[in-house]
Design a binder for these strands. Structure first.
Lengths: 359, 359
DNA sequence: GCAAAATTGAGGTACGCACCTCAAAAATTC
DNA sequence: GAATTTTTGAGGTGCGTACCTCAATTTTGC
C-alpha cells in the first residue's frame, strides 16, 4: 500500500497534527522537528495524494483564458480547442471561462485582468502582445498568487509562469528549410505574405525563414514581405503586382492568415500548384488547401495540445507541483497531405449548458 | 457550486441510496426510477467527481507494460518513456510495471499474461506481434475485466480496447512524399533497408512508401528491400553490393534500425550527404545523425506521447469513462534538423527507489 | 387479499487529506 | 524556579463518493 500521512506520523514519531503542519508549511514547528518529519517522508517514499488533498481543500480551479477579439480561423480553432479541453477538465473540478478582449485597446485588457483577480480566478492563460500596461497587470496578478501562462505568443518580460507555444523563429526556419528542399537548389524568387509585420510572431518567423534560406539555399531570393493589413483587396493586388516583378517565382511563404485570397490570386495568375506554397497553422481552410494541393506544407502547432497544456500547467502551478517538461513541450509540426491527421470527431463528452454560469 | 449526489437525490425525489444504485449500476431499481434519476442528473448537469470516486473506491491502478526483450534503441526509448510516464503517474495512484518477454517465444508471453491476471493487474499495454496464442491470451484477459491496449504495433483481431500508435502505411507514405519532394522530380534509384520484412511495421511502411512514389514520382525507382536480419555485416555488404547496381542512387529509405551501419557504408562509398536519407523513429543515434546531416528527415511517433497515452487510455477504460480521441491520436511527426525538439531534461520529479516494490 | 418478492430509504463507515480547536508538554526568558 | 512563550498532541469535521446493512415500503403473483 501507498504510505499515508499516518504512516509519516508513525515513522517520524510525531503526531498527525505535526505532520500536517510540516506538509502544509504551517508555522509553529521547530526546525529540528521539520527535519525529522521531512526525513521520514523521504524514507517511506510518501507522495501526497493530490486528488484527496484537493478534495479536502474544496479547491476548484477557476481558470480564465483571454484571447483577442480579432477574427481569424486560427483564433477560432484555439478557442474551440480551449472549449474542448475545458469540457474534458470538468471531471477534475476545473472551470474555464474564455474571454475575448478588444485587440486594439490595451486598457480594456488590463481592466479585465484586474476584474478577474476579484472574481477568485486562480489561473490565467493569455494570448496578447506584450505592452507595458499588460506587464504591470500580469505582475500584479502574480503578486496576488494567480498563476499566469502566455499562450501562443510569449510575454517574456512579464514574469509569466510559463509559455505555452512554439518558438516562431524556429518555426520560420522549419518553413525555410522545407521551401529550400522542396525547390532543391533551383534558383528563383520567394514571395512572403503577412497580415502585418507588427505582430511579433510574423516577424520572428520571417527572421527564421530568411536565416535558413540565406545560409543554405543561396539560389533563392526572398522578396520583401507583402503586408495586407487585413484587407483582401490590398492583398490580392499586392500579389499580382509583386508577381510581375518576380519572373521566376517559385515559392510563396504565408506568415499568417490570408491563404484564401492568396490561393485565388495564384490560381488567376496560372501559378496554382506550380509554385510551392508553405504556410502556418491548421485551420479548416488550410486543411482543405493542403488536401487539394494548393498548399504544399504547413508548419503548425497542435491547438489541442496547446489548450490542454495550458490547463495542465496552470493546474500544476496552482497545486505547486512540478510540470512534466516533456509533455508540455509544444512541438513544431510539419504537416503534408500525407500525414494530415484525421478530422477530429465532435469532442463534447459532457457539454455544459452555460460554460460561463459561475460568474 | 458543482452539483453532488445529494443534489441528485433532492432533484429526483429519491434517497441517496437509490441515486447511488443508479450511478453505479447496481441492481434492484425499477426502470422507471432509473429514468427519473437519470433525468435529474441531466437536468442539474451532474458530473461525477472522479477524484472523490476513486478515493472512495480505494482503487489503485496496477498497470503492466509488456515489451519484447529485443535490443533496439527505439525499444529502449519507449521503455524510458514508459518509465517517465509512470513516475509522473504515481501521484494519481497508478503503479506501472514494465516487463520484457522473450521475443522468440510466444508461450512465454502467454504465460506472463496469465500470471498478470492473478496478480490483480487491471490494465495491460502490450507491444508484440499478433499470434493465435496471444489472441487467446488477450481475449481471456479482457474477459476477466482487464483493459488491454496495443502499443506501437496494432493487434486488430484480439479485441484489444485501443491501439496506441501510428498507422505505418501512412508513415511510409509520408516518408515517400518527403523523399520524392526532396528529390523534386529528378530521376534515380531509392534504396530501401530493413532488418526484416517479417515485421508488420516494416512491411506496411514499405507499402505506403511504394504507393506514393509510384503514383506521384514516376522518375524514381524503388529498389528491392535489403534485409539485414540483425547482422551489421550482412547489412554493410548488401549496401555496397546494391549501390553497385544503382548508378543513380539518390535516396535511402531506412524502414527500421540499422542507421549506424548504413551511415558508415554510405560514407565509405562517398555518398554521405549526397543521397537523401530518410528514416523512422527518434533515438539517440538518429537524433545525432539528423543534427549532423547524415539523415535528412525522420518520420517519428513521439514516445513520450505514446507512453502517456497508453496510461491515460488504460485508466479511462478502467474507470469506464470516455477517452479524448483528439488527445490520444498519435501524430506522425516529420522531424528535420530545424524542428528537432530540444533534448528532454532528466524528468524524474519523484524518482521512486524501487519502482517494482509492490509485487 | 395475502404472502412473497422486489424496491426504496435511512444511516453508517471509509478513502486520504486539510484545517480547526483546545489542552498538555516542553522550551525559553528573567 | 516561576512565568511566559513556543511547540506538540489529541481529537474532531468535512470534502464527494462508494459500498454496506437493515428495516420499511411498495409491487407482484396467485
Amino acid at each position: 500500500m501507498r504510505p499515508t500521512v499516518n504512516d509519516i506520523a508513525r515513522e517520524a514519531g510525531v503526531s498527525l497534527a505535526t505532520v500536517d503542519r510540516v506538509l502544509n508549511e504551517r508555522p509553529g514547528v521547530r526546525p529540528r522537528t521539520v527535519q525529522v518529519v521531512t526525513e521520514a517522508i523521504a524514507r517511506i517514499g510518501y507522495v501526497r495524494d493530490l486528488a484527496a488533498a484537493n478534495l479536502a481543500r474544496g479547491r476548484s480551479y477557476r481558470i480564465a483564458c483571454l484571447l483577442p477579439d480579432t477574427e481569424s480561423q486560427f483564433l477560432a480553432t484555439v478557442e474551440q480547442a480551449i472549449h474542448d479541453a475545458a469540457a474534458a477538465a470538468v471531471v477534475s473540478r476545473t472551470e474555464v471561462e474564455t474571454l475575448r478582449f478588444p485587440a486594439e485597446d490595451p486598457h480594456a485588457l488590463v481592466a479585465i485582468l484586474a476584474g478577474l483577480q476579484a472574481q477568485g480566478i486562480s489561473g490565467v492563460a493569455i494570448m496578447a502582445p506584450e505592452t507595458p500596461h499588460l506587464r504591470d497587470a500580469i505582475r500584479s496578478l502574480r503578486h496576488a498568487g494567480v498563476a499566469v501562462v502566455a499562450l501562443v505568443s510569449d510575454l517574456p518580460n512579464t514574469g509569466r509562469d510559463h509559455f505555452i507555444g512554439i518558438d516562431n523563429v524556429t518555426a520560420g526556419r522549419t518553413a525555410g528549410v522545407l521551401m529550400g528542399r522542396f525547390l532543391s537548389g533551383n534558383p528563383g524568387q520567394i514571395m512572403v505574405v503577412a497580415q502585418s509585420l507588427l505582430s511579433r510572431d510574423a516577424l520572428e518567423r520571417r527572421r527564421g525563414f530568411d536565416a535558413v534560406v540565406q545560409a543554405d539555399f543561396p539560389g533563392l531570393e526572398v522578396l520583401q514581405t507583402l503586408e495586407a493589413h487585413g484587407s483582401p483587396d490590398i492583398l490580392r493586388r499586392a500579389v499580382f503586382e509583386m508577381s510581375r516583378h518576380a519572373p521566376q517565382l517559385r515559392g510563396v511563404y504565408v506568415l499568417g492568415s490570408g491563404h484564401r485570397v492568396i490561393g485565388a490570386a495564384l490560381a488567376d495568375l496560372g501559378l496554382a500548384r506550380r509554385v510551392v506554397v508553405i504556410g502556418h497553422e491548421m485551420t479548416p481552410h488550410t486543411r482543405n488547401a493542403l488536401q487539394s494541393g494548393t498548399i504544399d506544407a504547413l508548419v503548425t502547432q497542435n491547438t489541442g495540445h496547446l489548450a490542454r497544456s495550458a490547463l495542465r500547467v496552470l493546474r500544476a502551478r496552482i497545486d505547486r507541483v512540478p510540470i512534466d517538461e516533456g509533455q508540455e513541450q509544444i512541438r513544431i509540426d510539419i504537416v503534408l497531405r500525407e500525414n494530415l491527421p484525421p478530422m477530429a470527431e465532435d469532442p463534447g463528452q459532457t457539454p455544459r449548458a452555460k460554460p460561463d454560469e459561475a460568474a
